[in-house]
Design a protein around this nucleic acid. Structure first.
Lengths: 320, 320
DNA sequence: ATGAAAGCGCTAACAG
DNA sequence: CTGTTAGCGCTTTCAT
């Protein structure tokens, strides 16, 4: 069912139908004519062909976000995507999210988006493959992501150092898929420790099994010096907490630990887990604005993720 | 840059270019001609117009998934979406996910998908608004979602009843956005309790603040009978655990609790949290197959979510 | 083995 | 105020 059908039904021409349906740029239509078209359209269930509109040269109002997986941008993706979608909707754009870009799956070109947002950066391998075939701006969203991930580690170090700890342990995740992000975080931890003149950071991969974790805590304890752990994220920090409880080690009296992300269960851990949180509201707003500008053809740079995060002090960090 | 440009560059006609670029259905091209076209295409950077292709009548190889938010389908969405995307990619389809459908944002029509998957069901208000304007199958994905959510509650009850508990408490979430799902889960709990001939289930909204939670546990304890709690999900169950620890109540000796979802931190709670887990692999595979069939025009029904889940027994449930 | 041309549904410039 | 028409880029049938 096309405009031609509507035109026939309404006894008018296709041109008139088009004007009536889109609101007139200049054209003055009789209210009666307009109504007649609208009625006919609903009566026969007209739905415009997006493809034809696009082909005709209309700008698209959609934005395509490409990430390898849901956690693609350091665990911050879901919340960011939801807010970004809402923000863009305010400006009349729709955000669509395509996952699993790493593999063979090619980005959808059927959606001729106004802007493409990617979580891989221009340096990432495969970026060219992603961008190929798009004649619209392809922007690495999450600019400054590496620094952002590292910054969380730096905050952890500052929080721990402020309590007098001079020797820090970095507890990395067991999950292999997190390897790259963990390396970034670790670098942040190490750099800040060096900047603050602390001892060299000891790096551990925290074991997945509870029993192994508890043995590890036991071993750490024998060294007989204050234990301060910067965990890769809250999940790892929670594992440290569990291991400590299993080993009968008091937190924060004999062991301090701080995570990253401030996931809901951190508040509910025993003791409540200190963590690092990012407030991304302003960033997402700026990102949405940049996307809209890009869509309008203005050559703006997308915003950079904040490099200063907020420490949430709870009960898992003591003093040296 | 269009096929016409490629044709001019290669000294051939647009038709030939099209055949060379797409692989010949029947047509036999000289290898030399084919190469000439391919070279010309890369040389001048040709990229096909998806809109024109679509308009011309080619079926699209994309699938649009519409959900209100990331957690749209009972917390199971992210994992399901990732697997579904991978599964569909295997058949040459790309899945794109549009969030925030509840609000004013209209589904993207620029993407003329082969199939539209929605998390709202046909009964949900606003479903018509979503489906309007699509001339392709619009299928409520997650068929049997309500039963699925309820089933998890039923599993909790069975697990608790098997340990001899006759009086159960349902701990609902504080978060208002979860209200609808919580009601479903509660129904599952209540129905199974009735079916098993247990006492009427007591329904509580678990408080957000730790102090309030701990007071609540204290009050429960005074009633001097075994406490068995089916929590809405693991987050609530974790809160119960935290409250118990704060109140100095031993779990599972004096209080039993079981969650739903088996989130990573459940394993790491102290004591490790018993939970209910769903294995959705088969379901997602079947869903992908149904989507592909639908795209081919076969009128199949999408699969129903399993109504039998798996209990993960850990250390937070004792005996009556 | 290649070229010519029609037409997908739409909008906008031009006639009337 | 409304009708007619060209053409967006592509695929595909029909000629050659």
């Amino acid at each position: 069912v096309t405009t031609a059908d509507v035109a026939r039904e309404a006894g008018l021409s296709r041109g008139t139908v088009s004007y009536a349906l889109n609101g007139d740029p200049d054209r003055r239509l009789t209210e009666q004519t307009r109504q007649r078209v609208l009625d006919a359209a609903v009566r026969i269930g007209y739905a415009p062909s997006a493809a034809a509109r696009l082909l005709r040269g209309g700008r698209s109002r959609s934005v395509l976000l490409l990430t390898p997986d849901v956690g693609g941008a350091g665990g911050l993706t879901p919340a960011v995507v939801e807010q970004l979608a809402a923000e863009l909707a305010r400006s009349g754009f729709s955000l669509v999210w395509q996952l699993g870009i790493e593999g063979s799956a090619a980005p959808v070109r059927e959606l001729s988006p106004a802007v493409v947002l990617t979580s891989p950066t221009a340096e990432d391998p495969g970026f060219d493959r992603l961008t190929r075939g798009f004649s619209v701006p392809v922007v690495p969203a999450f600019a400054g992501r590496d620094a952002f991930i590292a910054a969380a580690g730096a905050e952890q170090v500052r929080a721990l150092a402020a309590r007098g700890f001079r020797h820090l342990i970095f507890a990395g995740p067991h999950d292999d898929r997190l390897r790259a992000m963990a390396a970034l975080r670790r670098t942040g931890v190490e750099r800040e420790a060096a900047a603050l003149g602390l001892e060299a950071v000891r790096v551990l991969e925290w074991p997945d099994a509870r029993a192994a974790g508890s043995r590890l805590v036991g071993a750490l304890l024998e060294e007989d010096r204050p234990i301060a752990i910067a965990a890769y994220n809250d999940d790892v920090a929670l594992a440290v907490l569990a291991a400590s409880a299993d080993a009968g080690v008091a937190v924060p009296d004999r062991l301090s630990v701080i995570g990253v992300d401030d996931v809901p269960s951190s508040r509910l851990a025993v003791p409540a887990l200190s963590s690092v949180r990012a407030d991304l509201q302003d960033y997402v707003r700026a990102l949405a604005a940049a996307v809209v500008a890009l869509a309008e053809g203005e050559p703006v740079d997308p915003p950079t993720l904040p490099s200063r995060l907020e420490v949430v002090e709870r009960d898992s960090v003591g003093t040296a």
